[in-house]
């Protein structure tokens, strides 16, 4: 299967400080890849790098490759990116409250995207906007198009953002924590909507989230990020059942589940993601890892396929929650 989006050795720096340190992943047409990690792990920067939406201090470094349907996006001009953004790849964001422009009607904001990418007339794009709002489950869309963002709820606004995103039928949708700011019930509805639209439009989704619950609901594959790198990558169900990296296991353990003993405190990973300036020479997770050995702090582990379809960057990957004793460096795939 050829990949729709192929990212190789993606390095991004802010003001000269590297924050993404060689990110590789593939996303296949119509599939969903979950990109998981804590705040500061680099998942949002990855998404913004792909979209070419880094702010003025951010730069994708030379040598990075971002290929969408075979076209290299890294190093493409702003003008060139504009032809791709919104048309072949679209993005929705974490903050539906502020992502829409407060001074224009919802209809305007959907219609202008339609007009830009599909070249429809003012009137036809208006009608298309109503249709799109209906597609994302907004009731009475004929009335809603004349309303302003502040008149809509958070969930509604995120639906409008989705309508904008799918308006030019993109092959790729990047969703950066699209449900984090929403109520739990609304979260479920939005995820179901994304799933439904994905099937209908055969659209690939890059789902960025810190929430492994979201991943298990929607993703086919999952890549776990830590300190600017991908440290584990496999099928979503396999990761949830069988995390091999101690960090992935820690993330899973810190998700509360129904029926847990309320008197036992929820496990958490001590400490926080080191900032790029403080990345250690060896394994970047070693300082927070309960299984870390002195060797872990010396040599950085490589992302290696330990089991078919399951890569992990750890010298002592967990099997059934127990670390393997041998540093298995020699096994290079």
């Amino acid at each position: 299967m050829t990949s729709l989006l192929s990212v190789r050795d993606l390095r991004t720096a802010f003001n000269g400080q590297t924050v993404l340190d060689g990110v590789d992943f593939d996303l296949h047409p119509g599939k969903t890849l979950g990109l998981v990690g804590e705040s500061g792990s680099g998942k949002s920067v990855t998404a913004l790098s792909v979209m070419g939406l880094l702010d003025r201090n951010g730069k994708v470094l030379p040598g990075s490759s971002i290929k969408l349907e075979g076209q290299e996006l890294a190093g493409l001009s702003e003008r060139g990116l504009r032809e791709v953004r919104g048309k072949r790849m679209a993005m929705i964001f974490q903050e539906p409250m502020s992502s829409l422009n407060p001074v224009y009607t919802v209809g305007d904001q959907v219609a202008e995207t339609v007009r830009k990418h599909l070249g429809l007339s003012r009137r036809a794009s208006r009608e298309r906007a109503v249709e799109l709002l209906r597609m994302v489950g907004i009731s009475a869309p004929e009335r809603r198009v004349t309303e302003y963002p502040h008149q809509l709820s958070g969930g509604m606004r995120q639906r409008v953002m989705i309508a904008i995103a799918i308006s030019a039928d993109p092959a790729l949708l990047i969703a950066d924590e699209p449900t984090t700011a929403l109520d739990v019930t609304i979260q479920g509805q939005i995820l179901a909507l994304l799933k439904e639209l994905q099937e209908r439009l055969n659209m690939a989704i890059l789902m960025i989230t810190h929430d492994l619950g979201v991943v298990s609901q929607i993703a086919d594959d999952v890549a776990v990020m830590y300190a600017g790198q991908i440290i584990e990558r496999t099928e979503a169900q396999r990761l949830v059942g069988n995390p091999a990296h101690p960090y992935s296991r820690g993330l899973l353990a810190s998700v509360p589940r129904l029926g847990m003993d309320r008197n036992v405190p929820l496990p958490s990973i001590p400490g926080s993601v080191p900032s790029p300036a403080d990345w250690p020479a060896g394994c970047r997770f070693a300082d927070r890892c309960e299984f870390a050995t002195p060797q872990c702090r010396e040599k950085p582990p490589l992302l290696i396929e330990r089991w078919p379809g399951h890569e992990v960057a750890c010298d002592h990957p967990l099997v059934d929650g127990v670390p393997t004793p041998e540093p298995a460096r020699e096994v290079v795939s």
């Binding site: 939406l53 919104g86 993005m91 903050e95 422009n101 407060p102 995207t113």
Partner: peptide
């Protein structure tokens, strides 16, 4: 210019003038 909505407009592929 630092508003999320401006980033959305860029994500939509709108021109610099827009």
């Amino acid at each position: 210019l630092s508003m999320d909505a401006v980033r959305t407009a860029r994500a939509k592929g709108m021109s610099g003038v827009n």
